[in-house]
Amino acid sequence: MASPDLSVTIGAIRMKNPVMAASGTFGFGREFGQLFDISVLGAVVTKGITLEPRAGNPPPRLWETPCGLLNSVGLQNPGLEAFISEEAPRLAGAGVPVIVNISGDTVAEFCELASRLEDVAGVAAIEVNVSCPNIHAAGRPFASDPGSVYSVTAAVRRATTKTLIVKLSPNIADIADAARAAEMGGSDAVSCVNTFLGMAVDTARMRPVFARVFAGLSGPAIRPLALRAVWEAASAVKIPVVGIGGISSAADAIEFLLAGARAVAVGTGNFVSPTACPEVVAGIGSYLEERGIRFLRDLVGRAAAGAFADPGDGNPHGHGNREEPERPW
């Protein structure tokens, strides 16, 4: 048998395999690029960038929890201009689709970021980080309300012709609603999920560990939670879902693919093993080979077969759409 075909498509991005490096865990590919050839990946998602440079939060920024990691890095990044002049030209030649993660405090900021990235060589897609606080909604994150997800998605959609991915937050009552909002806003895909809000208290100082009190939980600890979110999102929308949350091995990644993710991203796993991404790519290939499965796309959503009404709607990769929902917002 020929080696299995791992390729998948997200919007207009043709990925040679379904494995991405998740935003914020891979910088701009420089550091990990010294350890392995990043062109073996399906895609690289950059550290989140903002219009202006951001210094980030005061330390401590990290706190380990059982099988997990709380972080409060605070979007430290060099800003859009520095990204365009210092990072993008190198990434354009890296031989891997580059997805630029963007963050803003207002819809206008998201739109400006997207439109200024429109003509930057080597940018394959925009990933919208809706988890950042919306300064027009009392600082509540865009992601916490499907209406805000819809407005920011629809506005960015008008600002870019590039593939658009909305990164959903699990810190919401119903992630399926958020996924539908992103789909209706014109997103080409959703990524599920960003970190879960958590916190830690330093018992020696009798104070919260983090200056901002709450921090984002990632790592294997959140994997079952993220998997459920992916299942729910994939059940709710026709656009592809990128599964993220505690993936550190091929077995973890395959779980997400079977649950309905068309692609996956490795995040915190990169810190534990810097070669986790290429190992996941290789492991998925072996899994398919051992089972005589020729195409990775035949794996996507397979665990859900029969769990939902037969889609029959030209949506072989998700579980199909139940009824077209009314906008709940």
Binding site: T25, G56, N270, F271, P274
Partner: peptide, 9 residues
Amino acid sequence: ACGLGACLG
């Protein structure tokens, strides 16, 4: 976390 300069932790 990463020890490589990527995570900014």
